[in-house]
Design a protein around this nucleic acid. Structure first.
Lengths: 124, 124
DNA sequence: TGAATGGATCGATCGCCATCGATATGGGAG
DNA sequence: CTCCCATATCGATGGCGATCGATCCATTCA
C-alpha cells in the first residue's frame, strides 16, 4: 500500500533508532524529551488531537470553545506545542490557524515502536 | 476474552484512536499524558532506552554507571517510569531488574502514528 | 549475628510550569 | 480614524518536579 497524497515524506528521517533497539544518545534524548514533555499535559494532548484530527487545519476559536480555560492559558499551551515543533500556525486575517507537524509526530511514533508489532494505523 | 501468546497481545488494545484520527477524550488524555510526561525528561528517556534496548532486562547497577547522577536521583526516575506503567521491576537477590512494558510503549506509538505512514520498525 | 552492599525512601531546596487578569497587538467593520 | 474582536504577551502566584545527602530496608557473606 503506497502512500497517500497529503502525508508522505515523513518516515524518511527517523532521526534515531527506536528506543527498543539502541540506547538513545544524550543529545537526541534532549531533543525528543522536549517534544514528549509538550505532550505530557492532558490539555495539550487534547488540543493536539483536535488540531491533528481536523481536516487540514483548525482555528483557535474552535479550540477555546472546547475547554473551560481562559484564552491566555490556551494560547500558552499552543505556544508550548509550537516551540516543541509539534504544530505550525498561520495567521489569515483575524484568525490564526494551526496545523499538525506530522513529520515530527511520525518521528515520535517511530521511536516508541515495538519491533515485531506493527504500529497499526487506523483507517485504511 | 483470553490472551494468547505474550507476543501478540500488544497491539490488541489500542485504547484510543490515533491523535490524527479523532479527538481524544478527556479521560484518555489524562491517562496518556501521564505516560508522555514520564518520557518528557532526557534522563528518563535514556534510562528507558537502556532498559528497552537491553536483552530482556537490565540491572539498576548498569544504569547508574551510565549517568553522572546520585543513586537517589536514578531511583526517583525509575519510580516515575514505573508509576507511568512504562517499566516493570523485579528483585532477585541483591539486584533489581527492570523490563520495558512493551504493550504501553506500543500504545503510545500507535496514538502518535500518522495515517498513511507505516511507523516502520527494525531494519532500515 | 554483624558488617557490607544494592536500592529505595525521606526531607529540603530551588527552579520551572499551569493558570489567570491585565494589557498589548493586529486586523476587519463602520 | 476609531472601535471592536481574536490572539498573543506580561507579571504574579501557587504548586509540582529534579536533585541531593541522610537514612532506611533487604540480602548476601564472613
Amino acid at each position: 500500500m503506497a502512500k497517500r497524497t497529503t502525508v508522505e515524506v515523513h518516515q524518511a528521517e527517523p532521526c534515531c533508532a527506536p528506543v527498543m533497539t539502541a540506547p538513545l544518545q544524550p543529545e537526541q534524548a534532549v531533543d525528543m524529551a522536549k517534544m514528549f514533555k509538550a505532550l505530557g499535559d492532558p490539555i495539550r494532548l487534547r488540543i493536539l488531537s483536535l488540531i491533528a484530527s481536523s481536516q487540514d487545519e483548525c482555528c483557535v476559536c474552535d479550540l477555546s470553545s472546547s475547554f473551560d480555560l481562559s484564552a491566555p492559558t490556551i494560547s500558552y499551551h499552543l505556544k508550548v506545542l509550537r516551540e516543541a515543533d509539534l504544530v505550525d500556525s498561520d495567521r489569515r486575517g483575524t484568525w490564526v490557524y494551526y496545523r499538525p507537524r506530522t513529520e515530527n509526530l511520525g518521528r515520535l511514533s517511530a521511536i516508541l515502536a515495538v519491533p515485531g508489532v506493527p504500529a497499526v494505523v487506523g483507517c485504511s
